[in-house]
């Protein structure tokens, strides 16, 4: 399971605290050092960790905690609260355009899982009673259009393609028109993977955003990412003002810290997690449940 090693380490740290009864400032310091190491080991971004630990520590050293009868319990409660906040607090859901037709645009670095997740989303939407259509806007990667067609077939969802065009903006516009005309109510736009520092390709996404007005722009983040996750997430968010994050490849032993960092630096919620290569391997993300699971509560 993802987050497993983080979970083990944090729980280990708290066990030591619980056995102490009365806590001194030194005990809290040591515990926070352990929490810091555990988070870094879990690929949470360096700066995010520093801030997190400083916040937790400040709260822990408050009088109510140190003087309480069960200080260790209080510390764990604080960490749980902060961890839930870090993961996104209440949690959030995919939103639909109240006008009745929703465009969802996928974006992200190369190979994070956008095309596969398009299929998963289509599947999810159908189960939620929507009528989705897919749109192939990756005109660069060899066989990207073929890939989305195979995906579409697997989830019984039509795919708009234009193999002659090299212009994703034009393709997306035409797809939207056709989808509306044919009575679909969601269009999922697959886009090519790109680096957030690729000026030309980032401008292309801005252009699609401008012309097609996606109601939801979803950043697909690979759960295996390390420290770089914040650079990518910041870059995409600054250019596109994303609406949410999908964290993929959570089925392995991903540490998952990267996605938390991506959430933190963008302030945008993690909506789903991908837990496999099949099209039903998509789960809603619940920050509170995930935090409790990590802390074994």
């Amino acid at each position: 399971m993802a987050f497993e090693s983080l979970s083990d380490k944090l729980q280990g740290t708290f066990k030591v605290l619980k056995n102490k009864g009365v806590l001194t400032e030194k005990d809290v310091d040591e515990a926070m050092r352990q929490v810091k190491l555990a988070l870094l080991e879990a690929d949470v971004n360096f700066k995010v960790v520093k801030e997190f630990v400083a916040d937790v520590k400040e709260k822990c050293l408050g009088e109510e905690v140190m003087k309480s009868l069960t200080p260790a319990q209080q510390v764990i409660k604080i960490v749980n609260g902060e961890l839930t906040d870090l993961m996104g607090g209440e949690g959030a859901k995919l939103e639909y355009d109240p006008a009745g037709f929703t465009v969802i645009m996928m974006a992200g670095l190369q190979g994070t899982g956008k095309t596969t997740t398009c299929g998963k989303l289509a599947n999810f939407l159908k189960e939620s009673g929507k009528k989705p259509m897919l749109c192939a806007c990756d005109v660069y990667r060899p066989a990207a259009i073929d890939q989305l067609e195979v995906v579409g077939k697997a989830v019984n969802t039509p795919v708009y393609t234009d193999r002659k065009s090299k212009d994703p903006v034009k393709i997306a516009k035409a797809a939207k028109k056709e989808a509306e005309l044919k009575g679909f109510n969601v269009l999922i736009v697959d886009t090519a993977g790109r680096l957030q520092i690729d000026e030309e390709l980032m401008a292309e996404l801005e252009n699609i955003k401008d012309k097609v007005k996606p109601y939801q722009i979803l950043l697909v983040v690979d759960a295996l990412t390390g420290q770089d996750a914040v650079n990518a997430a910041k870059g995409f968010n600054e250019r596109l003002a994303i609406d949410g994050i999908i964290m993929t490849k959570m089925d392995g032993d991903a540490r998952g810290g990267a996605a938390l960092s991506a959430r933190k630096v963008t302030g945008k919620p993690i909506l789903f997690m991908g837990t496999g290569e099949k099209y039903d391997a998509l789960e809603a993300f619940h920050p509170d449940r995930m935090a409790s699971r990590i802390l074994g509560m």
Partner: peptide, 11 residues
């Protein structure tokens, strides 16, 4: 190995 990967690459 994807350069963006973190510690999972060890495993």
């Amino acid at each position: 190995l994807d350069a963006t990967n973190g510690k999972n690459a060890i495993s």
